[in-house]
């Protein structure tokens, strides 16, 4: 059974039908890429999974539990972390406070301290700046903080919404390396990206989203060589 299953999802903003029919599944241990042009509905899909938006119809199941019947604040403790589009770190709080909020649903201080230590290990920059106000970090550091904050909940799956947005090419490569590392450490990843080439290069499988519908899916390597994908998303 898949870890996360989305079936025939429909989401509206008022009368605007943003998601018309989206189905996909994510298996334990995979990196799944969800690619599509601006406005295709990628962010809406992720927001509906984590309860920031209500679906009009369809089903979302995680670990056998119906997510649509789960109160939003309980979704995190089930093992889902969401690194939102635009990072949305708490700009006025310190780096440390941001990380602690990432562990909001956890209660064992020893385990939280262990997670914090491993985040600081992976990102020494965050350790150096732990008492700094997060809004003063550079864009790259803020992305590292957003990913670390999500890791602090010790998730089974991480949903990442355009983690490479607005970063220099060097940082983009670093971000994708980190995503691969997180996955190798055992966390399943659902990656939303406009940078289709990079996303497909690290993903196991991928889905193409076009104006609220899945139009194509398959192993990431196949999509990398698919003519349609090449033309529309890889600029070849």
């Amino acid at each position: 059974m898949a870890l996360l299953t989305v079936e025939h999802l429909q989401v509206n903003y008022g009368v605007i039908k943003a998601i018309k029919d989206v189905s996909f599944e994510v298996n334990q241990g995979e990196i799944i890429a969800l690619i599509g042009a601006n406005g295709a509905g990628k962010t809406t899909t992720l927001h509906t999974i984590t309860g920031l938006l209500q679906a009009r119809a369809g089903r979302i199941t995680f670990d056998g539990v119906d997510l649509m019947k789960t109160p939003p604040h309980k979704i995190v403790s089930m093992g889902i972390a969401h690194v939102p589009e635009g990072r949305r770190i708490f700009q006025q709080l310190s780096v440390y406070d941001n990380l602690r909020l990432g562990a909001y649903t956890r209660s064992n201080p020893r385990e939280i301290a262990d997670s914090l230590a491993s985040v600081y290990d992976r990102f020494p920059r965050l350790k150096e700046r732990r008492n700094q106000i997060a809004g003063t970090l550079s864009g790259g550091e803020q992305q590292m903080l957003a990913m670390s904050r999500a890791l602090m909940s010790r998730p089974k799956i991480m949903l990442m919404d355009e983690p490479s947005m607005g970063l220099s090419p060097l940082l983009v490569s670093e971000v994708f390396d980190i995503i691969r590392e997180i996955n190798e450490d055992g966390t399943t990843v659902l990656l939303v990206e406009q940078n289709a080439k990079k996303a497909l290069s690290i993903a196991d499988r991928a889905y193409v989203l076009e104006t609220g519908r899945i139009t194509l899916s398959g192993p990431a390597v196949d999509l990398l060589h698919n003519d349609q994908v090449k033309k529309a998303y890889l600029g070849e």
């Binding site: 979704i75 939102p84 708490f90 909020l101 909001y104």
Partner: peptide, 17 residues
């Protein structure tokens, strides 16, 4: 801290649980 987080960004606070 939860109050500070909610006052800055309700959605992001909710994503923290």
């Amino acid at each position: 801290k939860a109050m500070l987080a909610v006052s800055e960004d309700k959605g992001a606070a909710q994503l923290m649980g």
